[in-house]
């Protein structure tokens, strides 16, 4: 249901493909932070590396359709660790529900906002602004 809405949004989006070198350390302005969409699916791979952690999800397709692979970017392992993440919180095969700010170009990618690991029942957020005070625990 949610995914169907998303596909509808994508069909309206301007498809301006980004080309170029590896985006190992890029600006996050490629993502539309005014929009949040939700996908559900299965974790294909969770890559815990600097400077941006990447989560690949095979998102559930509409009835009778194949899953669609999404590439979701997060901040750095150091920043995520401070938010309670570690490299094992998501594993291949886990069922997840992901809130994301989608790529402006309509491709199946986005900046991860929140993820709920349905397999473990735990949720994680990527909000760097939550760290903007001293003495955090």
């Amino acid at each position: 249901m949610k995914f169907a809405r998303l596909r509808s949004w994508i069909s309206c989006a301007v498809l301006a493909a980004i080309t170029g070198p590896a985006l190992a350390h890029h600006s996050f302005a490629m993502f539309d932070f005014a929009k949040t969409v939700t996908i559900t699916g299965t974790v294909k791979e969770f890559q815990w590396t600097n400077p941006h952690v990447v989560l690949w999800v095979n998102a559930d397709g509409a009835a009778g359709e194949a899953p669609v692979q999404w590439s979701l970017e997060l901040t750095s392992p150091g920043n995520l660790t401070r938010g309670g993440w570690d490299r094992k919180v998501l594993n291949a095969g886990d069922r997840v529900s992901v809130d994301l700010n989608p790529l402006r170009n309509g491709n199946h990618g986005g900046a991860l906002v929140n993820v709920k690991n349905e397999t473990t029942g735990k949720s994680y957020s990527t909000n760097l602004r939550a760290y903007e005070k001293p003495g955090l625990q």
Partner: peptide
Amino acid sequence: EERAGRPRGLFIDC
């Protein structure tokens, strides 16, 4: 370009 969602990252070469 940044506001239009087409940022040219300055540090993509790491």
